[in-house]
Structure formats: C-alpha cells, structure tokens
Design a protein around this nucleic acid. Structure first.
Length: 313
DNA sequence: AACCCTGTCAACCGCGCAACC
DNA sequence: CGGTTGCGCGGTTGACAGGGT
C-alpha cells in the first residue's frame, strides 16, 4: 500500500491542459505507448505528474472516446447497470464503448441522480423512497411553514403522519427479515392486506399479522422508540402538555399508538415529495428505504392527493 | 450591463490494491 | 515477508458557461 508520490512533487503544473500539452502527450503515446505513466511526463517533455497525464489521456485524448450527449439507450444502460453494480463507474463504463468512467459518473451526478430523485426513487437503492429520516426535515420544515400560514392542526397532522410512516418502517423491517418471516406471512400482506390500512394500524396490531421472531419485534420497537424521540422534538413548545422525558420503550410505544389510532378512519395522508436530503453515497437513510411492492403500487397516487402538498408545490 | 445563481464537466485528491523489489 | 511503487478507482472541487433578475 502507499500513495504515489508523483503528485507531491513541487513545480509540476496543475490545472487545465493547453493544446500544446495535449499534442505532446498524444504524439508521445502514439509513438511509444504510454508505458510507465510515472516516467512518461519526462520522456514526453511535459511538466506534469504521471497521474495527470494518465487522466488526461484516458478521459479526454484517447482516440476511441465518444463525446457528446448520452443517448436514451445509454441512459437506460447506465440506470440498469447502476442498479446492479452501484457506483462502480469503471465497471459500468466497460459496457458503454467510448464512454469513460468519469463521464458516466458526471452524467449520473448531474442528470440521472436528479431524475430519479424527482421521480421519488432512491438513487442508491433504485427503490421508491419512503425513508423517514430523509423526509423528516421536510416534515419539520412544513410544520414551521404551516405555522406561519395558519395551519393550526398541522402539528398534529404531521405527528400522525410520522407515526404512520413509522409503522411503514416497521413493516419494512419485518418484511426484510427473511429469518423472521415465513413466506405465507408475506403473501398474506402483499396479496390480502390493504397496505393503506396496514400503514394506519398501530405497530402491535400490524405486526401481529406476521409470523416473526421476538428479536425482530425488538428491533422494530427500537426504531419506533428512536422515532418517538424525534417526534417529541417536534412538539417542543407544548408547555404543560410536554411529556416527561422518559425513555421507556413501552411508554413511547403506547404514546405512539395513541397518536396513530385516529389515522385509521381518515383518508390516507402522505409524505412530502421525496427530495434528496442526503445525496452522498454514504446515505445513512438508504438502509431504511422501502423496497417492497406494497408502496410501489400505491404510493405515487397517494403522494399527489395531499392538499397541503399541492398548496406548497 | 452587472450581478447572482445554477448546472456542467475537466481535473484533482486520497485511498486501496496489486505488483515488484 | 514486509516495504515500496505504480496504477486505477470513486469522490470532490473549482472554473466556466449560461440563464435569470
């Protein structure tokens, strides 16, 4: 292991390449091949580090590089390969002749990623985004906006929606735990249960429809506990109504259940449009993204039925 | 016309792996 | 076998262009 010292050398030129430098590099490589990149700059009469020369050649000067806009076929290929390979740009590039990994990476970051986000799809998982922690900042922003605009019941509404979402998260966890769920249980959810009703049920009711291990429930409860704490921060200025800061899971569960219960009868509400709260590849929220067919079938319709959202859109 | 904002993309940086000594 | 070197990869930066105000 160890870092190449070539770029540490002082006096080497950095920054944009001049046409003269390009010519020198092209002529040298056409005549001798690149050989050792480290030795190349001196041999070619360039005041650059080898790394810079390699990058310039592979990303720009190589004769087989295809420049210009990506076709829709290329776009589809990138999307498909990214869903399989992730950010393995060089691997993706091998399937797109004439395109460099750098070019594909840039195209992804500037176009495709945003496209997916606008469509409500997590660019990391390629599944619809319903993750709580990516949308919570929006819920909070909406809460303050709603306060400014006179939505008196908005705070309650948001809390209820967050609880609804928590149930969804728990369902997700249960579904994604193959050791804890047998096939028939999954079938009973996806085929027989109305996912909208499921979302609106308290956790204990919803999870009782599944065959699961105690550890799974504990895990789901822990997440719900975490959510409850966040919800408490949403209702900070509640004065005498403020709950004592108990961290008992049971207490929080009961509290959350009581919040969730009124959500059974009203029409299903929705989350704000899914924006990219954390665009980085290390998106910690991604692990909560809901990948099941349940949301894929009903979520988008619900999304655009929300009057509050249309108001803010 | 000047300024600001946003999008694009070439280039750089830092790290890990593998070959070499 | 451990240290060194070279290369490739993914992430990030910054210059520039274009559009909007």
């Amino acid at each position: 292991m160890g870092r190449s010292p070539c770029c540490d050398e002082i006096g080497l030129k950095k920054g944009p390449w001049t046409p003269e430098e390009d010519q020198k590099l092209i002529q040298y490589i056409q005549k001798h091949g690149h050989g050792s990149w480290r030795a190349l700059p001196k041999l070619a009469g360039l005041n650059r580090c080898g790394k810079s020369c390699r990058l310039r050649w592979t990303n720009y000067l190589r004769p087989d590089i295809k420049r210009g806009k990506f076709s829709s076929e290329e776009e589809q290929t990138i999307l498909h390969l990214h869903s399989i390979l992730g950010n393995k740009w060089s691997a993706i590039a091998t399937h797109l002749p004439g395109r460099t990994d750098n070019e594909i990476k840039n195209f992804w970051n500037t176009h495709l990623k945003k496209k997916l986000i606008r469509a409500g799809i997590d660019p990391v998982t390629h599944h619809p985004r319903t993750d709580l922690f990516a949308t919570l900042p929006q819920l909070m922003a909406l809460a303050s906006l709603g306060g400014l605009m006179g939505y008196r019941s908005l705070d309650d509404q948001l809390r209820a929606e967050a609880v609804q979402l928590a149930n969804l998260q728990c369902l997700q966890n249960l579904l994604q735990s193959p050791a804890a769920i047998n096939g028939s249980a999954i079938g009973s959810i996806t085929n027989e249960m109305d996912p909208t009703n499921f979302m609106n049920q308290p956790l204990t009711t919803a999870s009782s429809n599944l065959s699961h291990s105690p550890s799974t429930v504990v895990n789901a409860q822990t997440q719900l506990h975490h959510l409850s704490e966040i919800l408490c921060s949403l209702e900070q200025p509640r004065g005498s109504d403020a709950k004592e800061s108990s961290t008992s899971i049971d207490f929080r569960l009961e509290e959350t259940k009581s919040l969730a219960t009124p959500m059974v009868s009203p029409p299903p509400s929705a989350l704000p449009p899914l924006a990219d709260a954390s665009m980085g590849s290390g998106d910690a929220c991604s692990c909560f993204s809901y990948g099941g067919s349940v949301t894929a079938s009903f979520w988008p319709e619900v999304l655009f039925d929300e009057p509050l959202l249309t108001e803010f859109a």
